[in-house]
């Protein structure tokens, strides 16, 4: 029963919802689509946040209790979480000057202030560090010296030059050497980085995206069907 009922649920709902987009009877559209997607699934999902709190709490509590390694940092995690949660949920909406409010999640709340001035800069910094990582990743594939990595890197370099003013400058210079637009043999075309970039994006890039897209669609369809028909059931987690 612990396995059969969930499997039956998936099968029944899977089959019903397979046909839902086909039907546009008002009752079906209003209830099975609108209500379920906008309300029911959201309500069901809301409760999952409890597990995230529990897991974070337990992980850090265990660390602190065992005094293992860097357990002092665990306090920081707990303080951060509890502070933000308390400000959002429990704290009274007192005016604390400077136009700010202690509790709640409004635009002028302390909760939002911490988010904007601590979480956002840190996340943006993490994001910006990608510039360094991209450089080292490129350097590594440059050293790899196999034909695939070389192709990838050369294309990347062309596209990069094609996207900055430098590419256009090189082309204009080469065009001048070539004798301008009127020249019979336009060898300078091979330096037209913008044009080449556009060609790469329109042809090989678009082609591979499409090919991968078809494959991914097939994989998704097969996986969905395996789940609906109970062929793949590892999501159940247990065997009993």
């Amino acid at each position: 029963m612990k396995r059969q009922i969930p499997l039956m649920l998936v099968l029944t709902l899977g089959i019903i919802y397979f046909f839902v987009p086909l039907v546009s009877i008002p009752w079906v559209v209003d209830n099975l689509q609108y209500e379920v997607f906008n309300k029911w699934l959201k309500i069901i999902g809301v409760f999952a946040v409890i597990m995230s709190v529990a897991s974070l709490w337990r992980r850090n509590a265990v660390k602190i209790k065992r005094k293992s390694g860097d357990y002092a940092y665990s306090y920081l995690e707990l303080i951060g979480m509890v502070l933000m949660a308390a400000l959002a949920i429990i704290a009274p909406r007192w005016n604390i000057g400077n136009g700010m409010v202690l509790g709640g999640i409004g635009g002028n709340s302390v909760y939002n202030w911490i988010f904007m001035n601590m979480q956002v800069p840190m996340q943006a910094t993490m994001f910006s560090m990608l510039a360094f990582y991209i450089a080292s990743a490129a350097y590594r594939s440059f050293r790899a010296r196999n034909i695939e990595a070389t192709l990838l890197l050369i294309t990347a370099a062309i596209v990069m030059i094609g996207r900055v003013p430098l590419g256009e400058n090189i082309y204009q210079f080469m065009l001048k050497l070539n004798g301008g637009e009127a020249a019979a043999f336009q060898w300078s075309r091979i330096f037209d980085f913008q044009g080449i970039t556009q060609f790469i994006l329109d042809v090989p890039n678009a082609a591979t995206k499409r090919a991968i897209g078809f494959g991914v669609a097939m994989g998704m369809l097969a996986t969905s069907l395996k789940i609906i028909f109970g062929i793949e059931k590892s999501w159940l987690g247990g065997t009993e």
């Binding site: 943006a124 910094t125 990608l130 192709l151 990838l152 596209v159 790469i200 090989p204 082609a207």
Partner: peptide
């Protein structure tokens, strides 16, 4: 696979400038 690599290279190249401008932002 050669086509795939050229395609991926293009995605790679397109992203670089965006990442650098993020860093400049910081």
């Amino acid at each position: 696979i050669y086509f795939l690599m050229i395609g991926f290279g293009a995605s790679f190249g397109l992203t670089v400038m965006g990442r650098i401008s993020l860093l400049i932002g910081r």
